[in-house]
Simulated assay, not measured.
Amino acid sequence: MDENVLGIVAGVLTSVSMIPQLIKVIKSKNAEDLSWVMIMVLISGLSLWVWYGFIQNELPIIVSNAFAVLVNITLLICCIMYKKKS
C-alpha cells in the first residue's frame, strides 16, 4: 500500500472519530460527561501534529489534524456552553 494512502486513511479515521460525540452533545445539549481537560490536551496534541506536518511538509498530517483541531474546538465550545452551572 502506498504510504500516502495509508496516511490519508489514518488521518481521515482519526479526524472523524470525535464527530459522533460532537453530534450527541449538540443534539442533547448536555456536556456533563465530557472532560474539558481531556479536550484541551487533545487540541494541544493535535495542534503540535499540525505544526509537525508543516515542518515535514506533509499535507495528510496537516489537513487531517487541522480538521480534528476544528472538531475538538467546537466540542470544547459546546462543553463550555452546555455544562450546567454548579
Rank of each mutant, 00 (worst) to 15 (best):
I43N: 09
A68I: 07
W49S: 00
E32I: 13
K24H: 06
M18N: 13
N30R: 09
S64K: 06
L42N: 12
I26G: 00
I61K: 02
C78S: 12
I62R: 04
S86H: 04
S35K: 06
L13I: 13
V16C: 07
K84Q: 08
N65D: 08
L34R: 12
M40F: 09
N57C: 11
L75G: 03
T14F: 08
S86G: 07
S17V: 15
V69H: 03
S17H: 11
V12R: 05
Y82L: 04
V41K: 02
K27D: 04
K85M: 01
F54E: 05
I55D: 14
I39K: 08
P60A: 14
I61Q: 09
L34A: 12
N72P: 07
K29G: 11
V63F: 10
S44K: 07
K24F: 05
T14Y: 04
G11S: 06
S28R: 12
L13F: 10
G45F: 13
L6T: 09
V25A: 04
I77R: 07
S64W: 00
A31V: 12
A10R: 08
T14V: 13
I55S: 14
V71H: 05
S15T: 12
G45C: 15
K29S: 09
K84A: 09
V50G: 08
F67P: 00
L6Q: 08
D2L: 12
